[in-house]
Design a protein around this nucleic acid. Sequence first.
DNA 1: TTATAACCTGGAATCATTCCGAATTGCAGA
DNA 2: TCTGCAATTCGGAATGATTCCAGGTTATAA
Lengths: 138, 138
Amino acid sequence: MKTSIIKKMKEQGFKITPQRAAIIEVLADETLHHPGANDIYRQARKKTKRLGLSTVYATLNELCRLGIIKMLEFDKKENRYEGNINPHINLICKNCNRILDYNLPVSIDPKEFLKKSRFWVTDTRLEYYGYCRECRKK
Amino acid sequence: MKTSIIKKMKEQGFKITPQRAAIIEVLADETLHHPGANDIYRQARKKTKRLGLSTVYATLNELCRLGIIKMLEFDKKENRYEGNINPHINLICKNCNRILDYNLPVSIDPKEFLKKSRFWVTDTRLEYYGYCRECRKK
DNA sequence: TTATAACCTGGAATCATTCCGAATTGCAGA
DNA sequence: TCTGCAATTCGGAATGATTCCAGGTTATAA
């Protein structure tokens, strides 16, 4: 995943700086699902000497614009970022703030939807809020 | 709708002040779909002499907590509020920022979902981003 | 009518994110 | 390998929606 992202960026004419490499490395870390900008900042800092928070934001925005990652925007909480691009439902635990992926049973066909609703869908955001397995135990 | 909201608030022990009445009146206005806090502030001001923006926020938060209205949270844009509580998809136009409702073809059964996923769903947020009929014409 | 807890308000505080401008650097081409 | 420069970086300041605060006001039960 890391190398494929770097390849995509190079193709688009972006320079691969140590800062960007570190950020991409963190995003590719499967154990760290749906991190926020500060999580990414903290982790990436361990991998490269100089790194500013504004650089993290700029890079994440760039990756979003390229459609390589997806931003999950929130109002009161930090935004979160995910590498899983294909449509799915995000299960968001209101207790521990963990975000889990849940594959869609059926996918939407934008063309079909356009016919029915006259609305042209380019992007979806599907979230179920509630309590995850671990938090329900308590 | 206006009277039913006021009834609910009274039941919960809330006082009905002129400010709250004005805000509820604006929320009940069907022509003004999914307004933001500032829209509500501007409209409600016409209906009552003294009104502060902080009061609007406080009242909207209260109504959300009571489950009477629903807040659609955004990061860069203003949050929006809707009176339609039953689950549906919000179609959000990226051009004009209009938000349209689209009824779900099938609803989720939380119990069913809990069995399958071990996640207890209390609330959903379903959004399709894209372009509405009017904006597609251009 | 009164007592009082709830309510209202303007201004200050918050906080994630963006902006800015000066310094630095990756890298294409020589 | 070296050079030139557009792209990149980064600290600090700005932004903007929302929340907090403390003092004055008021709806409502008794």
